[in-house]
């Protein structure tokens, strides 16, 4: 567990603090996304956790231990760190870049190399083909994969990721996000993830922390934030398509009506959708095939139905306060 308490950073030559009395708790195994406009202090908060920036006041505890009195270098070796600019060492091969932290930790060479093979495979790179290359011979997406592999090399329980997928094109970004979610599902690390992209925040985060001018504006699950945005700043950040985003986060099986009678009537309905698909996809089916009811399937079996009524009710119930805009 990571606990930030009253964290404040005041740079000498600025009037306002970059981070202002920021408190937050992150549970073990949780991905917490810090999101906000550029200059809001989210990166500074991240860099205070691994002490690349020293806080002016406040405390940081990891599993109850005070980070600010720990040895900086040891602390960082036990935290994965990924930055947007990646920062691979240009004079070292991909293999040596990934091996960096294990070697700093004094692992046996054999163990290190085995780990490097394993990690390159994990992030979708061919260890034989890529391992001996230099960073400048890689594409942006490949570099970022190496960056993630390097951060995970010593299997740190905590990963700090600062806009890790910010520098690649949207298609590669989306693929890297998906792959990283897969990896996260199997390793369950505590992740602090910084982004200015609200869609990325909604996709990657178990929890989202919305930050503005160095202050925590709202902290909650993506669903909570979408359904009960705390004030105009959050609403603005979420954008006009809040309802659609919400439908993207809701699975069909969570919203469908389980009505046996209705299902009987719907036999042979050409409009169907998988139970684990987002409601947004069901909406797409309804619009494309021009039908008012979609049958929700689990495998081949119909388990429920979605109608306009459920979808409207879902959006309306959650974003009703938009009327005040």
């Amino acid at each position: 567990m990571i606990e930030l308490e009253g964290l404040t950073k005041h740079y000498p030559n600025s009037k306002k603090p970059a981070v202002d009395d920021f408190s937050l708790k992150m549970a073990e195994g949780e991905t917490c996304v810090f999101v906000g406009p550029s200059g809001c202090g989210k990166t500074t908060i991240l860099r205070m956790i691994n002490r690349l920036v020293e806080p002016t006041s406040g405390s940081i505890r990891i599993d109850g231990k005070d980070v600010l009195s720990a040895d900086q270098d040891q602390l960082r070796r036990n935290m994965g760190y990924v930055i947007q600019q990646i920062g691979l060492l240009p004079h070292r091969t991909v293999r040596d870049n990934v091996a960096l932290v294990p070697r700093l930790l004094g692992w046996a060479e054999e163990r290190t190399l085995k780990r490097v093979q394993e990690l390159l495979g994990l992030v979708g790179l061919d260890p034989e083909e890529t391992g001996g290359k230099y960073p400048h011979q890689l594409s942006g997406g490949q570099m970022q994969r190496v960056g993630v592999a390097r951060a995970m090399a010593a299997d740190p329980p905590i990963m700090l990721m600062d806009e890790p997928f910010g520098a690649v094109d949207p298609i590669v970004r989306s693929r890297l996000q998906d792959e990283f979610l897969q990896i996260q599902h199997s390793f369950n690390k505590t992740i602090c993830f910084v982004t200015h992209d609200i869609d990325e925040a909604m996709k990657m985060g178990d929890k989202v922390a919305i930050i503005n001018e160095g202050k925590l504006v709202q902290h909650g699950t993506p669903m909570e934030v979408l359904s009960q945005p705390a004030g105009p700043f959050v609403r603005n950040l979420l954008g006009e398509d809040r309802g659609v985003k919400l439908l993207d986060l809701t699975k069909c099986q969570d919203l469908m009506r389980r009505d046996e009678g209705l299902l009987q009537k719907l036999q042979g309905n050409p409009c169907t959708i998988g139970a684990l698909q987002p409601v947004k996809a069901a909406l797409e089916v309804m619009l494309r095939k021009d039908c008012d009811t979609v049958t929700v399937l689990r495998g081949d079996r119909a388990v429920g139905a979605l109608t306009w009524q459920e979808i409207k009710g879902h959006i309306h119930g959650l974003s009703g306060e938009d009327h005040e805009l």
């Binding site: 691994n50 690349l52 270098d73 040891q74 602390l75 960082r76 070796r77 036990n78 760190y81 930055i83 600019q85 990646i86 920062g87 691979l88 060492l89 240009p90 004079h91 960096l100 932290v101 700093l104 960056g147 390097r150 700090l160």
Partner: peptide
């Protein structure tokens, strides 16, 4: 030496001395 390289090296837990000898001087 590119700032992000130094930044990443520090962030990985290299000591100032290791950064100098293994990153800054070779580059």
């Amino acid at each position: 030496v590119p700032l992000e390289v130094r930044e990443a090296a520090r962030g990985m837990g290299m000591t100032a001395r290791e950064v100098l000898l293994q990153v800054e001087l070779p580059l």
